[in-house]
Nucleic acid binder design. Structure first.
Lengths: 202, 202
DNA sequence: GACGATACGGAGACAGTCTCCGCTTTGTCA
DNA sequence: TGACAAAGCGGAGACTGTCTCCGTATCGTC
């Protein structure tokens, strides 16, 4: 018993099967080659025509959005875990930003379309981003109330910084320690240390 | 008297003229449309064939590098001015990073090829970047010696952060204040305030 | 002015995105 | 179970952009 479409009719099984299969293939493909690999190549690898690919996902961004959907649930689970288990609000924010940073590294090149999505409001990725900004707002607000984050920092900027850091990271790979350096730099940016100690750098 | 080429022969005047003209046109074109506009469109606008464009500049990156050459001199002049006029080493570093941030905003989309250039060593942009990292090192070193910058910050990371901030800025344009927020966040990241005051935010 | 070297132009090879439409497959209903 | 309409499929090809190749035009020299 498949779900019914918007009208009474059933969703055709071949359609459903294709959709799932394309997603599987695209997931692997993007993971291997980064998000800018050829769309037609994905279609070919999935064994479907280009038309089929584009009927399911009208462009690269839509495909990406569908792929991220699954990961979103993971990230939301992680958010809940942090809420539950982390009592220190600064650490909670830091952990959330870490989780975000990891999520955005799911595929090489992902930060770019996300950044673009932030400038639009039509994009399927925009809503996702908005949701995560809201969550950031929540963690940030708590940290600010507790005096663990500068009061002038804004959630949207933190989100953008996380994106930007992830973006920069893919240039830093040659120099491994840069990755950590950038994260530390960002944390040091928003964090308001009560006792004047240097953040991070374990 | 035109300069001589590597062999004894003079450089052909039409070649020289074309080169200059293409650069003028490309400068305006990139300024208008960002760096991802069509190369053939530049050739057409310059009134030359595609072949001529590509003989002078084998790819977009080479064209970009040639365009930035001129601006480099500006930036270097600014560097010298800061060296001369700014006695506070933290402010000097801040000003230098501001200047860098501005330079990198010369054309929309510029941060991306610069980031890529940092991962390579063949690119014509790489050398330029390296030079600026070295300058950053100088300013940062001074600030660190004076206790105005965290000792764990590294010049390369600061350069990358500047790039990343500029990159993020073009998503922040819709929300004007984000641009400033990001810069403040970054400065707050490297700066080690002696008296515990909040940085920037005048 | 003639000649060889050099540069020019633009047609076209190639690669990518995305659309369109004839054909096949599917679900439904008798 | 068979027949019919609706839905989906495939891939040729339109379109856009990058970059190359080579016949032709231009330049500098002697």
């Amino acid at each position: 018993m498949s779900e019914a479409g918007t009208d009474g009719r059933r969703v055709r099984t071949d359609k459903q099967r294709n959709r799932v299969h394309i997603l599987e293939v695209a997931e692997q493909f993007f993971a291997e080659q980064g998000i800018s690999g050829s769309m037609d190549a994905i279609a070919k690898r999935a064994g479907v025509g280009a038309g089929t690919l584009y009927r399911h996902f009208p462009n690269r961004e839509a495909l990406l959005a569908a792929l991220l959907q699954a990961r979103n649930e993971e990230l939301e689970a992680r958010r809940d875990a942090i809420r539950r288990e982390e009592s220190d609000s600064s650490d909670a924010l830091a952990q959330w930003l870490d989780a975000l940073g990891e999520w955005v590294t799911a595929f090489d090149g992902l930060p770019e379309p996300l950044r673009v999505a932030l400038t639009e409001d039509t994009s399927p990725l925009t809503i996702t981003c908005q949701g995560f900004i809201t969550t950031t707002e929540e963690f940030l607000g708590a940290a600010q109330r507790d005096g663990g984050a500068h009061p002038w920092v804004r959630a949207r900027d933190l989100f953008l910084s996380t994106l930007a850091t992830a973006w920069a990271r893919s240039a830093a790979l040659a120099d491994e320690s840069s990755s950590e350096g950038l994260s530390t730099l960002m944390r040091s940016g928003w964090e308001k240390s009560v006792d004047g100690t240097t953040p991070g750098a374990s």
